[in-house]
Design a protein around this nucleic acid. Sequence first.
DNA 1: GTCGTGACTAGCC
DNA 2: CGGCTAGCCACGA
Length: 111
Amino acid sequence: MAEISTFANTVYELVKQIPRGKVSTYKNIALALNKPGASQAVGQALRKNPFAPEVPCHRVIASDFSLGGFFGSKTNLDKKIQLLKEENIQFDLNEIKKCPKYRKSILFFLT
DNA sequence: GTCGTGACTAGCC
DNA sequence: CGGCTAGCCACGA
């Protein structure tokens, strides 16, 4: 097993707690860790993602509801994400941007 | 112990 | 409105 840093470990747990059909933002997670500025550090933890299938990194997006950088850019999760988006998440940024209220509905607020 | 990176955020031009 | 810079935190080398 891989030894994970305490910080990353917390991030993974939070992300894993995200229910199906909902998403969270890096900042939100960082805030949950009481580190409002560690948003990037959170992303780093997910980038390593030792719990790949367990931690739905695709459910974590930027605070602006942007895809941050995984979809069809750096990683080839492309199809994986697409599947998840259709099966688990209504990750239609188009819809989200159109309906600000809707995005809040799918936004899973961590504490 | 120091430097550089990274899937970020907010502010500034 | 759009692009760029600076700042933030954590981790790897």
